[in-house]
Amino acid sequence: MSRLYGDPIEVWLREGRPARFVWRDRLYLVRAVQDHWVTAREWWRTTDADPGERRFWRVEAVTGRDIGIYELRFDTASGGWLLLRAWD
């Protein structure tokens, strides 16, 4: 079962991939990237401004003894990271 969150997080990268992140004052270490995809933000708009991309990662991460699956999103336009979803 998964839960939706949309919480801001702080992420550290290694070789362009999430290596660790802080969510709700807890440090998570990424053990594996399970999936990665990119979508264009507001691709339907026809303005000259670049709307940017949203880059998604589904990762297996550990904090203490707890292991979970988490979906992270980076928005290139805002430069912000969110934790979108977590699986039990």
Rank of each mutant, 00 (worst) to 15 (best):
L72I: 05
R58K: 14
G80V: 11
D7H: 06
W43N: 07
F56M: 11
V62D: 02
A40Q: 13
T39D: 13
L83C: 14
A49V: 07
W43S: 13
A40K: 14
R73K: 13
V11I: 04
D66K: 15
R26K: 02
W87R: 14
A49I: 04
G52Q: 08
T63E: 15
L29S: 12
D66S: 09
P51Y: 04
I69H: 03
R24K: 07
R55Y: 02
V33S: 12
R41I: 09
R58A: 13
W57H: 14
V22I: 01
F74E: 03
R24W: 00
V22W: 03
D35T: 10
W44G: 03
R85C: 09
R24D: 01
R14Q: 15
L82M: 03
G52T: 07
R58H: 11
W43H: 13
E42H: 12
D88H: 11
T39R: 15
W12G: 00
D48F: 09
S78A: 10
R31N: 10
D88M: 10
F56R: 11
D75G: 01
D25C: 03
T46F: 07
R65C: 01
R31T: 11
Y70F: 15
S78Y: 07
L13S: 07
Q34P: 00
A86V: 14
W23H: 02
W44A: 03
S78F: 07
V38P: 06
R73H: 06
A77E: 06
G52L: 08
D25R: 10
W87F: 13
R3D: 09
R73S: 13
E15D: 15
T39V: 14
G68W: 08
E53T: 10
R85F: 03
T63R: 14
P51Q: 04
V22P: 03
S2K: 05
P51L: 05
R55D: 02
D25E: 04
P8L: 05
W12L: 11
A77P: 04
W43L: 10
A40H: 11
G80D: 14
H36V: 10
V33T: 15
R65K: 09
T47G: 14
A61F: 06
A86E: 12
W81F: 05
R65T: 00
M1L: 06
R41K: 13
Q34R: 14
I9V: 15
R58F: 08
T47V: 10
V11Y: 03
